[in-house]
């Protein structure tokens, strides 16, 4: 390596300038979107859901999804537990948690599943290109024009929600509940599922208002409801929230921490790479080492062989 003192400092100066330019670019602290203060939300009251699957049907229609293999009227679909997939953004599952009615028959509880639209979505934090973003109205929005198909959002999602068009060879999309973004962006617009629900099991509104509604229902009827709003605090809060008379653990809801799951990785990234301080420091350090050791002859390490 032909390294002269003058050459070293001249080029080191240029590298420093490049580093400064990099530091002047948007700070790593800048977030794609702040946590919305009062987004829209949906409150699902599991005591009201009758498992009619009208929400599935409406979702299919407003999002122009492919026809299902079995009709939305076919009750046997409920005989097995399903997950949302690339052809269905929401599904209703039936559970028999053990409660009996007057005739000694098991009472079913129905649970609608879809993207929870987290307040601090792990998918949006993970997305390499920022194709997933948290919108002011609460939507976790997917912009297919940015997506490269790395599926890191699917790895990150604590609720195992985003699905993928695995059988499209060239233009597959990440598929998940859109929160009917276009519809709710218009005044008075409702998500397809919330609009159709015949039992008002799904209430659409401002998240803070919905939390009050939920607390009131629990307070007014403490026998019917458990004192837990799933989604109030889970992973830092979600736009979709549930109240229930049956423990959530028995209804397929998973235990998630109250801390938003991307916190740790974001903290590490932002601490280590804010203004690129660590790479610049390391570069300088290695440059210093290289400079001080430049005098070593090409084979001055002949003793190396003996030192083993």
């Amino acid at each position: 390596m032909n390294l002269t003192r003058r050459g070293f400092f001249r080029i080191a100066g240029a590298a420093g300038a490049a580093g400064a330019a990099a530091a002047a670019s948007p700070s790593p602290e800048v977030r794609a979107a702040a946590v919305p203060d009062d987004p829209y939300g949906c409150l699902v009251d599991l005591t009201r859901c009758i498992g009619c699957r009208k929400c599935e049907q409406a979702c299919n229609r407003v999002n122009a999804l492919p026809e299902p293999e079995r009709s939305f009227e076919d009750p046997t679909v409920l005989n097995r537990l399903r997950r949302p997939d690339a052809r269905a953004f929401t599904v209703v599952n039936r559970y028999f948690p053990g409660r009996l009615d007057a005739g000694n028959q098991l009472v079913p509880t129905f649970v609608k599943i879809q993207c929870m639209h987290c307040q601090e979505p792990a998918c949006a934090s993970a997305c390499i290109v920022g194709a997933l973003t948290k919108k002011e109205n609460g939507t976790v929005h997917y912009d297919v024009s940015k997506c490269i198909g790395c599926r890191y959002c699917m790895v990150a999602c604590p609720f195992e929600i985003p699905a993928y068009e695995y059988h499209d060879p060239v233009t597959p999309r990440v598929m998940k509940c859109t929160y009917c973004y276009e519809r709710i962006s218009q005044a008075g617009g409702l998500p397809g599922c919330a609009e159709i629900c015949p039992t008002e099991a799904i209430t659409f509104g401002r998240r803070k208002t919905l939390l009050e509604v939920a607390r009131k229902r629990i307070r007014d009827n403490p026998v019917q409801y458990l004192d837990h709003i799933y989604g109030e605090r889970e992973v830092g809060g979600t736009s979709w929230m549930y109240i229930s008379g049956i423990a959530f653990g028995k209804l397929g809801f998973i235990d998630v921490p109250e801390t938003p799951t991307p916190r740790l990785s974001e903290k590490i990234q932002h601490t280590l790479f804010a203004y690129l301080w660590s790479p610049i420091l390391l570069y300088g350090l290695l440059g210093g080492i290289m400079w001080t050791s430049r005098k070593r002859g090409p084979h001055s390490e002949a003793e190396e062989g003996d030192r083993r």
Binding site: E29, R31, E165, P172
Partner: peptide, 25 residues
């Protein structure tokens, strides 16, 4: 592995500083 191989250049234009994968890429 990525679904849209032809879009692999996009992280050069669309940046997400929260994403570890962005920095790795």
């Amino acid at each position: 592995d990525i679904g849209r191989s032809w879009a692999i250049w996009k992280p050069m234009i669309f940046w997400n500083f929260d994403s570890v994968l962005f920095e790795v890429a």
